[in-house]
């Protein structure tokens, strides 16, 4: 199994959705898209080997992949969608009047690169903009950096982290998305300084969404494979940008980008992933 299939507990959620154990998902014959992006479904430099099916979230990912000559695509929607399906009865999204405050996701570094940006400026913008309590969700790297974490805490924000995505199946918080779901449904707004996966997740659970503030930049835009796609995202998805956004437009785009209209049944997923129960 491609180890990125485990990130954020994606394989685990899909396993549970298919009626199989959550804790120990079977190997998926193929590669899952692990985050929303403006590429072909996979990160820069991540080229699934020939013959491996590519399970992507949206038809836009499929079209981009096919445009660069990649084959073997299947659009199944985001694993998040399947978590929503699993949660709809046991932990449903509460009514709007029971939700309060904002959860803000600052743009973050990643395992192989850093970003440049002014956290203090961003904090000031959040304080100027948001009414009510603010929860700031840091990526695990920033969360483990006291000098950054403390700035948000000192500003009076509740600071949390959903967990680690892990590397090579080590250190993965397999309930990452569960934690994210629990946090998002208790907040009225989901915001970030960049259009990111979390914004789409927020929109999918009926949160108001907003993208504003210093977008920060990658410190090492080495070549076209690690480019800063913020401007492109603003051009392509203007409906998400700004302090106030149009819920209807945002919802329509979210359905397309998360593939909420492209979900597979448990039987279909089992067949696609090579999870047919043979015993």
């Amino acid at each position: 199994m491609d180890t990125s299939n485990h990130w954020y507990g994606h394989a685990h959620i899909l396993s549970e959705y298919c009626g199989l154990p959550f804790e120990q998902p079977r190997p998926i014959w193929g590669v899952l898209q692990h985050g929303w992006n403006l590429l072909h479904g996979f990160g820069p430099g991540h080229e699934p080997p020939y013959g491996f099916p590519k399970f992507v979230w949206s038809h836009a990912n499929l079209r981009r992949g096919q445009a660069v000559g990649w084959r073997d695509y299947a659009v199944i929607g985001a694993p998040w969608n399947y978590l929503l399906e699993l949660k709809k009865d046991v932990e449903p999204v509460p009514p709007a009047d029971e939700r309060e405050g904002t959860i803000f996701y600052p743009f973050h570094t990643w395992d192989h690169g850093e970003i440049n940006g002014d956290h203090d400026r961003l904090i000031a913008e959040i304080l100027d903009t948001e009414e009510g309590p603010v929860t700031v969700c840091l990526y695990w790297i920033e969360y483990d950096m006291p000098e950054i974490r403390r700035r948000y805490e000192d500003a009076g924000f509740r600071v949390i982290c959903h967990g680690k995505r892990g590397t090579l199946r080590q250190g993965t918080d397999i309930r990452f998305l569960h934690k994210q779901y629990a946090e998002q449904i208790r907040h009225r707004r989901v915001a970030s300084n960049r259009l990111t996966t979390a914004i789409f997740y927020g929109a999918s659970v009926g949160s108001e969404v907003a993208v504003y503030g210093d977008p920060m930049t990658f410190a090492d835009v080495r070549d076209a494979s690690v480019r800063d796609g913020n401007d492109q995202a603003r051009r392509l998805f203007p409906e998400f940008h700004g302090v106030e956004t149009d819920a209807e437009e945002v919802r329509a785009t979210t359905v397309r980008e998360l593939g909420l209209d492209a979900m597979a049944s448990p039987a279909e997923l089992r067949a696609l992933f090579g999870w047919e129960i043979t015993a």
Binding site: H40, R64, A224, R227, D231, Q232, R235, L236
Partner: peptide, 11 residues
């Protein structure tokens, strides 16, 4: 100049 719908990564 760039307008919406610009595409990277291929030609």
């Amino acid at each position: 100049s760039v307008v919406s719908g610009d595409m990277y990564d291929w030609s």
